[in-house]
Write a protein that binds this DNA or RNA. Structure first.
Ligand SMILES: [Zn+2]
Ligand SMILES: [Zn+2]
Ligand SMILES: [Zn+2]
Ligand SMILES: [Zn+2]
Lengths: 137, 137
DNA sequence: GCGCCAGTTGATAATGATTGTCAAGAGCAT
DNA sequence: ATGCTCTTGACAATCATTATCAACTGGCGC
C-alpha cells in the first residue's frame, strides 16, 4: 500500500523498482528535510537496510535527473529532497535542513521582466530563502 | 592609479596588499564573468604572473569572506566574481558566465512575507536567473 | 517454474577540487 | 637595516563523487 506508488514512480522514471531504490525513495518521501548521500547511506545502514554507498549516490542522481528530487548545495556537498513536481522555490532551515516549498508569482514575473530587459533567454532560475524555523529557535 | 583603490580595498579587508593579491583582485575587477580558482590561476600564469594555486584559492576565499566577491556554484565547483557591495541578485549567462547584477524590490518583499508566513527568521536568501545572453545566442 | 539477459549492485580504485603543512620569503613599523 | 608577523607555494592529505567490473536480479518468454 505504501510501496505501490513509490514503485510506480520509479517505473515512470524508467527505473526498475529494486529493493535498494525503494528503500531510498521510501525514506525520502516522509522526510521534510534535504539529505546528503553520505548521511542517507548511514541512516539506511543504521536502520538495518543493506545498500552500498555507490548505489545511494547513483539512485539519488537518477531520481534528481528524473525530476523527482531537488538538489541543494550545502557546504560544498549535495543534499537531496523529494519535492513536488510543479515549479516552486524553497524556504530552508539552516539548522535542521527542513524545507518548505513556496510558489511566488511575483518572482516569476520578475524573472521574465529582468531577463527581457537584459536581452537574456531564460533557461532557469532559482530563488531560495534561508533562515531558522520556529522549532529550531 | 589603477592599483591604488585595489590596494586600499585589500587593506580595508585587513589583508596586506601583496603582489599576488593585487594581481588577483586586479584581474577580477574588469571582468564581467565569474571565474574558478583553477581557471584564474591558469590565466594569471598564462599572462606571465607568478602565483601559486594555493594562493589563488586562499585569496579568493579571503576576498569572498570579506564580502568583496560573490560565490557561485558551477558544476560542483566554485566560481568567484567581483560584485557590488550592496545586496543584489544575478542574471547569469550559462555560456560565457557573464553576470549582470539585479536589484528587485519585489523579491525582497516576497522574502520577508514568505518567511513571516512560515514563522522563519530570515538569515539570507538568493535569487539567480540563468540564461543565454544576447551575445552568446 | 526455468532460463536469459539487460539492468543493477557494491567493493574498490580513481578522480579532482579544495585544504593542510611548514619552511622560505616579503610587508611594514621601529 | 632589523625584527616580527603575515604571506607564499610546492607538496601532501582530504574527501565527496565517479569509474570499474565481476557478481547478482527483475521480469519476460518459454
Ligand atoms: Zn528547523
Ligand atoms: Zn520560480
Ligand atoms: Zn554570454
Ligand atoms: Zn534579495
Amino acid at each position: 500500500m505504501t510501496v505501490r506508488p513509490v514503485a510506480q514512480a520509479l517505473r515512470d522514471a524508467g527505473l526498475r523498482p529494486t529493493r535498494q531504490r525503494l528503500s531510498v525513495l521510501q525514506s525520502l518521501r516522509d522526510r521534510p528535510d534535504a539529505v546528503t548521500a553520505q548521511d542517507l547511506h548511514a541512516e539506511l545502514r543504521g536502520a538495518g537496510a543493506s545498500i552500498g554507498l555507490t548505489t545511494v549516490y547513483r539512485t539519488l542522481t537518477a531520481l534528481a535527473d528524473a525530476g523527482l528530487l531537488d538538489v541543494f548545495t550545502r557546504d560544498s556537498e549535495q543534499a537531496f529532497r523529494r519535492c513536488g513536481t510543479v515549479h516552486h522555490h524553497h524556504l530552508v532551515c539552516e539548522t535542521c535542513n527542513k524545507v518548505e516549498e513556496l510558489s511566488a508569482a511575483e518572482v516569476e514575473d520578475w524573472v521574465h521582466h529582468a531577463a527581457d530587459r537584459h536581452g537574456f533567454e531564460v533557461t532557469g532560475h532559482r530563488a531560495d530563502i534561508f533562515g531558522i524555523c520556529s522549532e529550531c529557535r
